[in-house]
Design a protein around this nucleic acid. Structure first.
Lengths: 365, 365
DNA sequence: CCCTCTTATGAATCTTAAA
DNA sequence: TTTTAAGATTCATAAGAGG
């Protein structure tokens, strides 16, 4: 295990925010002194005109100058430079996390690999409450991607397997994390009541990253500090942070925020257990999974009606088409109907409610 | 809309598997003739030595010769070549899906963008039953990533929004798909009872891809056909497939598989249509047909505004006149307004949206 | 204080046929 | 090809207002 001299470590501006260009600042810090880097670089969204919700309200888009790049080539150049500066700072056993979307993450991932970083996992942050696709032209963009990589293939990176397992109610932490976006009181506001930063990340995300891949006392550097989520969670968890940020306004918000943060009592790092509701199972999944086939006939529990399954998970009966619930309700002239218990299928000569198939899927989740 | 001549289309080997090098075979096919490409390219896994479970049984890893690449450079070269050949085959409004893991997907994504493909979504296949990480050194690798991209930025790609929404029981389909891995009876075995292909994809995944982004009769090409999941689902769903595969053994398994597959009946392949596909009805027709009378008053859905119908199918309100949409937008100070759902008329003491009258006309067409 | 209803909002590459 | 106008389109949360 290599360790740096006290002199070099003393040069580290621990638990401070430095104002300036990330790449220049990183190049001015002593090499091989940082345990973990968490980076939330500009995504290069390339947005065009305005977007309105169906209720005609305007979406407050990320149109800040810092997210504008002239071309992929310019963006790649920027990415290569900051990743190289970051790698120089890492201890031999250090690691990096980078978060992004499909606009930029493929370029970031390829650059990481090209520079000798060793990808350990890609992690999907599945947002429980993403913004919908208002025009119905694409899938709801419901996730962002994080890449976790060590400095090189031989790094003995930090991974707190048992801690993450505990966070996940006793089973191995997976590469997909379901967490809500940052909203409500957690979302920092400026004096006008507007959001202080357009892309503030939730503390729950950083909590999982830092608990899982750092130890107390480690040095965590964030080159795109923004309003300081990385610093706030690091301080709570007893890690040291270094924040780099170009925008003085963001820094002011972050300093104010960090001043209010207290380190958790080390004994009381209690695990917030997520209550798991019964997962919703769309009827269409039964069709996709081949448990029911398009064209197959379902019969109602009372035997009075029948309907046929379509490839998109809707039913078609005499004069009616729609979801299992809609068609059931229409045929019974009822205001509503629980299609799961109303409709039955035949297997091995027996008539069975389709709810049985839903239970089968739930048991697999 | 560009369409190819019968001569060119006739050259397409529909619903066949061609044996040989994917890139050479693609280059031999007529350009601009394919609606959708689904590709599951080699992953470049770079596994170091054998992997053993805690009980010392050996994991049957993906270590076949076709998955070994000397370096990222060689892999990138290969990727660029097959993506270019694929792009040449696509119709102007065609699209591509590529699936991969963190070992290769970042390089594939960057190459797609560099070649002018336009990324529409990245999709996470969240496996409900992944293989755990036996050594407890990383997170359980519980997902794979798919990229959906159109041929270029201006392609009018196929997206069956309503069908996917129906598959998801009425709410927008998201970019994270929870589906089980391919196992059990679906997993093809060879004569020794071993799995016939190391990375066979579940049919449920292809079902969602093909229902969502193709129409019946479309041509779907898979350049890494393997044991033919793409072909099997395409055949079931009434799409045409072209399979390219180098390994004669896989082809034999796939041919056998496809021989047993039957197409679902056409009616159940019909999918919930989007309103955009419905014929346009000029508002003036309602007046011409006497469903509304000139001089009659319409009120807005929120009850705040009213306007009177004129003989030419325009509305007149305080200070504004124009189409149902224009007047609605002006009164609400909104950038746009769907007049069909905004305006209501009175019949038999009830207030009804004028869209009801449009539906009446459409049902007569 | 509790419950209900309304309003606001989030890293977004978000229309298309007809003239 | 470019321009114009029709008209299609949202989910989960949380805060705040009102009763």
């Amino acid at each position: 295990m290599m360790t740096k001299t006290k002199t070099e470590a003393a040069k580290l501006p621990l638990n401070q925010i430095l104002c300036g260009d990330s790449i220049e600042l990183m190049n001015s810090l002593p090499e091989g002194t940082v345990d973990l880097i968490f980076a939330d670089p500009p995504y290069n969204l390339q947005l065009r005109g305005d977007l309105h919700r169906p209720d005609n309200s305007r979406v407050d888009a990320v149109d800040d100058a810092w997210d504008q790049f002239a071309s992929f080539k310019v963006y790649d150049q920027f990415t290569q430079e900051w990743l190289a500066a970051a790698r120089r700072l890492l201890k031999p056993n250090g690691a990096i996390w980078v978060i992004g979307s499909y606009h930029n993450i493929f370029r970031v991932g390829a650059a990481l690999q090209n520079q000798g970083y060793w990808i350990l996992n890609d992690v999907v942050w599945r947002k429980s409450n993403p913004m919908p696709n208002f025009r119905g032209k694409r899938l709801t963009n419901a996730h962002e991607t994080l890449i976790w990589a060590s400095k090189d293939e031989n790094s003995k990176y930090t991974f707190n397997y048992e801690a993450l397992k505990a966070l996940n109610e006793g089973t191995q932490m997976r590469s997909d994390w379901v967490l809500p976006i940052c909203s409500g009181h957690e979302r920092l506001k400026n004096s006008e009541g507007e959001k202080a930063h357009p892309t503030q990340k939730p503390e729950s995300l950083l909590h999982r990253v830092l608990v899982g891949t750092t130890n107390p006392g480690d040095v965590v550097l964030d080159p795109f500090f923004g309003t300081g989520t990385t610093g706030a969670v690091a301080k709570k968890l007893g890690r040291n942070f270094i924040g780099l940020e170009r925008d003085a306004g963001y820094i002011e918000v972050a300093r104010n925020r960090l001043g209010k943060v207290r380190k958790f009592d080390s004994e009381s790092l209690e695990v917030t257990k997520s209550k798991r509701a019964e997962p919703r199972v769309p009827f269409g999944q039964l069709v996709e999974r081949g448990m029911l086939s398009p064209g197959e006939t379902l019969t109602s529990l009372n035997g009075r009606h029948s309907a046929r399954v379509r490839a998109d998970g809707t039913l078609i009966a005499k004069d009616v088409r729609g979801s299992i619930h809609q068609v059931g309700a229409a045929l019974e002239s009822a205001p509503s109907c629980n299609g799961w218990t109303y409709w039955c299928f035949r297997r091995d000569g027996k008539t069975v409610p389709i709810d049985l198939l839903r239970q089968q899927i739930r048991s697999e989740l």
